[in-house]
Simulated assay, not measured.
Amino acid sequence: MQLKKLLAAGVAGAFLTGLVACSSEEASTQGQQWRYAHEEFEGDVQDVFAQKFREYIETHSEHQVQIFRFGDLGESEDIMEQTQAGILNFVNQSPGFTGALIPEAQIFFIPYLLPVDDQQMVEFFRTSRAINELFPALYAEQGLELLTMYPEGEMVVTADTPVRSPEDFRGKNIRTMPNPLLTETYRAFGATPTPLPWGEVYGGLQTNILQGQENPIFWIQSGALYEVSPNLIFTGHGQFTTALMANQDFFNGLSAEDQQLVRDATAYAFDYITEYVPGLSDAMLERILESSDQVTVTRLTEEERQAFRDRAPQVEARFIEMTGERGAALLEQFKADLDAVRKE
Rank of each mutant, 00 (worst) to 15 (best):
M1W: 10
K4W: 13
K5D: 07
L6Y: 06
A8C: 08
A9L: 09
A9Q: 12
F15D: 05
L16A: 13
V20M: 11
A21L: 05
S24F: 02
E25I: 14
T29R: 15
G31I: 06
Q32E: 02
Q32T: 00
Q32S: 04
A37E: 08
D47T: 04
A50P: 07
E55T: 15
I57Q: 01
E58T: 06
H63R: 04
Q64P: 03
V65I: 14
R69P: 03
G74W: 08
D78P: 06
A85T: 06
A85L: 15
V91L: 13
Q93H: 09
P95F: 01
T98N: 05
L101D: 15
P103T: 07
E104A: 14
A105S: 10
Q106Y: 09
L113D: 03
Q120W: 10
E123N: 04
E123G: 12
F124I: 10
S128M: 13
R129H: 11
N132M: 08
E133N: 08
L134P: 08
Q142K: 07
L144P: 08
M149S: 05
A159T: 06
S165P: 10
P166E: 09
P166T: 08
E167Q: 15
K172A: 02
R175C: 03
P180M: 11
P180T: 06
T183R: 01
T185F: 02
Y186K: 01
A188Y: 12
A188K: 05
G190D: 01
A191H: 06
T192P: 10
P193D: 13
T194M: 03
T194N: 07
P195M: 06
L196S: 05
L196C: 05
G204R: 00
G204Y: 02
L205Y: 03
G212N: 00
Q213C: 13
E214G: 04
N215R: 13
N215L: 11
W219L: 09
W219E: 10
Q221R: 12
G223L: 06
L225D: 01
I233W: 14
G238Y: 00
Q239C: 01
F240V: 08
T241P: 05
A243E: 15
A256R: 02
D258P: 02
Q260M: 12
L261S: 14
L261W: 13
Y276W: 11
G279S: 06
M284R: 13
E290I: 11
S292R: 03
Q294I: 06
V295N: 01
V295M: 01
T296Y: 00
T298P: 07
T298L: 10
T298C: 12
L300V: 00
E304N: 13
R305H: 08
D310C: 03
R318Q: 12
R318H: 08
F319Y: 07
R326K: 12
A328P: 06
L331A: 11
L331C: 08
Q333Y: 06
L338R: 14
A340R: 06
V341W: 04
